[in-house]
Simulated assay, not measured.
Amino acid sequence: MGLLRRITRLLRKPSIDPEKREENYRCIRCGAVFERNHRVCPDCGTQYVLPIDEKER
């Protein structure tokens, strides 16, 4: 149980330097952006978190 908790904490940490953080995924409902893909948006709960196109950046 402790090992799983440590791994989860490690994976949830943001990048070391927030300026260099790449936000590659966006929720199409609320517009929240994320570094990694989520099955469900943590902000609004929708299941539509999609990769951001290079044109949209």
Rank of each mutant, 00 (worst) to 15 (best):
D53T: 13
P18W: 03
R6A: 14
R6H: 10
E56I: 01
V33G: 01
N24I: 03
R29C: 02
R39G: 12
E22L: 14
H38F: 15
K13E: 14
G31W: 05
E22V: 09
K55S: 12
R12N: 05
L3M: 12
V40K: 04
P42K: 08
L10F: 14
C44V: 13
G2F: 02
I16V: 15
K20Y: 02
G31V: 05
V49I: 15
E19D: 05
R12L: 10
T8M: 07
P51V: 07
E23H: 03
I7G: 01
D53S: 13
G31E: 10
P14C: 07
I7A: 01
S15Q: 14
I52M: 10
C44Y: 09
P18N: 04
K55C: 01
L4F: 12
R26D: 00
R39A: 07
R12Q: 09
R9L: 06
S15T: 08
T46I: 07
S15A: 15
P51C: 10
E54L: 06
Q47C: 04
E23C: 00
F34T: 01
R26Q: 10
R21C: 08
R9W: 02
L50G: 00
K13W: 07
V49L: 06
Q47P: 00
V33E: 12
Y25Q: 06
C27D: 03
R26C: 08
N37Q: 12
E22Q: 15
R36D: 14
